[in-house]
Nucleic acid binder design. Structure first.
Length: 445
RNA sequence: GGCCCUAUCGUCUAACGGUUAGGACGAGAGCUUUUCAAGCUCUAAACCCGGGUUCGACUCCCGGUAGGGUCACCA
């Protein structure tokens, strides 16, 4: 009957990376799998470092990933409550005001410390099993800098309880914080939630993903044209799997399949190459229209009728929308710009023993191409041209390439491009004839 | 360094005492009747080490080793 409540509690002190959002993904999936509640709590107790723009970025990212909060809080909103409980702890003799000698600039002369009862504390981690911490090592730790400035551990213990959080799902770097927070809960008479410490996401140097190691903000991936479905899919599979052979799960399938008991204990390395591969999978599932809209291809000031025809090529080549955009002005720009031809390249595949075959082939292809209907498919173009090149091949080895290469180069002007059949079907017969004629002129000149 | 956690191909992982240790990404090769891309097929690639327990250990226990995390008036 106890319904599940999880929370994602980021601090708005910087741009968050994939490792941060991976915990959000797991907390969300776990909550939704059991039809529970997902809370987002912005931990802005550090007024000096918290910035509104970082908070906005976090919300943007969660919206993009479609991890909507059922309830959203800002920790600073709970100041009065924190103050009240801080006073209670002091009154009850569980905490005390301590005079200090400031060690660092900004340090206070009076802080509030928690009276450490000593001993050991054990909790059962949902993922790792029993974890025991010797509390004595902690000393009388600080829980607030003043009555209005609670420190992380205190604010977390209070808020988790007040918000009815049943499962604290967070990174393994918080394991050693758990005992402190449990101590505070007990002193306050609050129940202890269940803890699930997720394995950390590492960078390629096997260090915790972080700013210093150059971890990208997740919104950077969004801006590069990674699909939210792909990011979600990839992140969910970092430290978890559904237990069957499926590799690509939609959001709904993830919610349905998520099982926290299958979460890995060991840390995992963030692999951008794999992410891109997952992204390509999801990009290919998009309709051509959605592909154009979502990739902003329409804003490129290119002929839209041709863009639409090129989308299938982009789907098989690009791994991100950014790459797709770059291809239209780069390796696939021949669909939009007339090629500048190099006579030597036109003749690059001409067998020495068959001089003049390039020009005769191009001339011989002119009429058949002219006769092609409007809107002809690449497959049909192929059925017209292949017999022609096969005939040349029959006359001598290398004949096929001797026909196809100059044709493709005449049409594209680049050494690497899609095949000539595809180019003709996209360019149309008029433009194709024009380009081939130009190539013939160069060969004759 | 103290404390805590972890350990299967390069990477993400399957296996929950008995398998030729499987899949995916990546890599290599070949085939796809020109190049590139895609696709298809194939190949290489892993149980950290040492002790136990057991008829039998990747699987359980212990010890090493290695890696990671954490030791703030940050969260």
């Amino acid at each position: 009957m106890n319904s599940v409540v999880t929370r994602f509690a980021p601090s708005p002190t910087g741009l968050l990376h994939a490792g941060n959002y991976r915990t959000a993904v797991f907390a969300y999936l776990f909550a939704k799998h059991s039809e529970g509640k997902f809370i987002v709590r912005i931990e802005d107790t550090d007024a000096a470092r918290s910035k509104p723009e970082y908070e906005a970025n976090i919300i943007d990212a969660l919206t993009w990933l479609r991890l909507p909060a059922d309830e959203q809080y800002r920790q600073s909103e709970h100041r009065p409550r924190h103050r009240e409980l801080l006073e209670k702890l002091i009154t009850d003799g569980m905490a005390y005001i301590s005079k200090e000698i400031p060690k660092n600039p900004g340090d206070r002369e009076k802080v509030i410390r928690f009276k450490n009862p000593g001993g050991a504390i054990t909790f059962t981690d949902v993922i790792r099993g029993d974890i025991t911490t010797d509390i004595g090592d902690l000393g009388d730790f600080i829980i607030a800098r003043s009555l209005d400035e609670p420190v992380f551990h205190f604010a977390v213990a209070v808020d988790d309880s007040d918000e009815g959080v049943t499962h604290v799902i967070r990174g393994a770097d918080h394991i050693s914080n758990t005992a402190r927070q449990m101590l505070i809960q007990r002193a306050l008479g609050f129940p202890t939630p269940l803890y699930a410490h997720l394995p950390l996401i590492m960078d390629s140097n096997h260090k915790k993903l972080g700013k210093r190691s150059g971890a990208k903000a997740i919104t950077e991936y969004r801006d590069e044209g990674i699909l939210p479905e792909a990011m979600l899919n990839y992140l969910a599979f970092l430290g978890w799997n559904p237990g069957d052979v499926r590799e690509y799960l939609s959001r709904e399938e993830l919610v349905q399949a998520f099982d926290i008991s299958r979460v890995q204990k060991g840390s995992a390395i963030f692999d951008e190459v794999k992410l891109f591969s997952v992204n390509q999978h999801w990009m290919r599932k998009l309709s051509d229209d959605d592909f154009i809209t979502m990739s902003d291809l329409g804003k490129l000031a290119l002929r839209s009728d041709i863009v639409l025809k090129v989308v299938p090529l982009l789907k098989e080549r690009a791994k991100t929308f950014k790459e797709a955009r770059e291809m239209l002005t780069g390796e696939l720009s021949c669909f939009f710009n007339k090629p500048e031809l190099d006579k030597n390249l036109l003749l690059a595949k001409e067998p020495p023993e068959r001089p003049g075959i390039a020009i005769s082939a191009l001339k011989g292809l002119l009429e058949p191409i002219k006769a092609l209907p409007k809107g002809v498919s690449a497959e049909v173009v192929k059925t017209i041209i292949m017999p022609f090149s096969d005939a040349e091949e029959a006359k001598g080895k290398g004949g096929r390439g001797a026909v196809l290469w100059p044709l493709r180069y005449a049409l594209s002007g680049v050494e690497r491009s899609p095949d000539p059949f595809t180019i003709i079907s996209i360019l149309g017969t008029d433009e194709s004839i024009s380009r081939i004629s130009k190539a013939i002129a160069i060969l004759e000149g």
